[in-house]
């Protein structure tokens, strides 16, 4: 493979005004974004932000209450879409009384004409899962491996994973991440990976969707989002932020003694004596998570196309 996996013209997910209600209120509200095909997209947000709801709407397991979400240009869970999407829920539902072998057979029989036995078996073999062991007797890491094997065996165009690595030890996590990235490299599979372990995303994801309070806060290429922000450090006294920041969007700002540390979205050159550098992914996410009021930012490729067409 010598070509990038993205297919910028094709769309994996596109939400316009998407809303989903749960018992006590809105889990998602007025969400509009686009994830181009071929991306490895991190879906990040605090607990209860709506990540799992978004994934289950995309998987076709629950309906949107407002607006719409298109998956691979079709309706979520529709007959033309469901066979092309794998979804792995957080609790990794598998049948505890099935053996490893039974589970793989189930994958084959439920996905006629699409099942890639070699891909599924490779993952199971690499983990030395005993074929006749019952799922209920496997360790957490082994169950995750088997669940991922089912998800890969389907040869999906879109892989939706809800906190897939949360119960894995560091070695298995590395192996599973490598398996995911290999899948992306071989088949240009679009991967949407919900996680709140920020460290496991750096170097893995090239696209980002940050949700908070049911709304989209950041969406776009990781590189472009990082380069749109600056960490600014310098000498400043007094509580109010420096006047020269008024021209920019300030995401966070705090003063310790005489030192001011801020994250801003510059709208041009930053006046004054400041040290500036591009934030790390973790810096960027933490600053936005700590400041829920910061304005949202979508890069051009993350703007839904149908809204533009309608406008």
């Amino acid at each position: 493979m010598t070509d990038l996996t993205f297919l910028p013209g094709r769309t994996a997910l596109e939400a316009v005004g998407l809303g989903a209600r749960h018992r006590r209120g809105w889990a998602l509200r007025d969400c509009s974004f686009r994830v181009p095909a071929g991306r490895v997209c991190a879906l990040v947000g605090p607990n209860g932000a709506g990540k799992s709801t978004l994934l289950s709407v995309a998987a076709g397991l629950r309906r949107a209450d407002e607006g719409a979400l298109a998956v691979l240009d079709g309706a979520p869970g529709g007959p033309g879409v469901r066979p092309r999407v794998s979804y792995l829920a957080q609790e990794k539902p598998l049948y505890p009384y099935f053996t490893v072998e039974d589970t793989l057979r189930m994958g084959r029989e439920l996905n006629p004409g699409r099942w890639d036995a070699a891909a599924a078996e490779r993952l199971v073999k690499e983990g030395n899962l005993p074929p006749h062991a019952r799922v209920g007797q496997l360790s957490g890491g082994q169950r995750t491996r088997l669940a991922l094997a089912l998800a890969f065996g389907k040869r999906p165009e879109l892989l939706l994973l809800d906190e897939p690595m949360s119960d894995l030890d560091p070695l298995v996590r590395h192996e599973m991440t490598a398996a995911l990235m290999t899948e992306a490299a071989e088949n240009a599979t679009t991967i949407v990976l919900a996680s709140h372990v920020l460290a496991e995303l750096e170097g893995v994801c090239d696209y980002l969707l940050l949700v908070g309070d049911g709304r989209v806060r950041l969406a776009g290429e990781v590189e472009d989002l990082l380069s749109a922000h600056r960490v600014v450090v310098g000498r400043h006294e007094g509580g109010a932020p420096p006047r020269s920041f008024a021209a920019h969007t300030v995401i966070s700002s705090r003063t310790t003694g005489r030192q001011l540390t801020a994250m801003i979205r510059p709208e041009g050159p930053i006046a004054g004596q400041w040290e500036t550098e591009e934030p790390s992914l973790e810096d960027l996410l933490l600053a936005h998570l700590r400041n829920p009021g910061a304005p949202s930012l979508l890069t051009p490729s993350a703007e839904p196309r149908s809204r533009k067409a309608a406008a």
Binding site: M1, V40, E175, A178, T182, A184
Partner: peptide, 12 residues
């Protein structure tokens, strides 16, 4: 990617 678990587009 198989050895380092990084995004393939980064290598490219």
């Amino acid at each position: 990617v198989a050895a380092t678990a990084i995004n393939p587009n980064t290598v490219l």
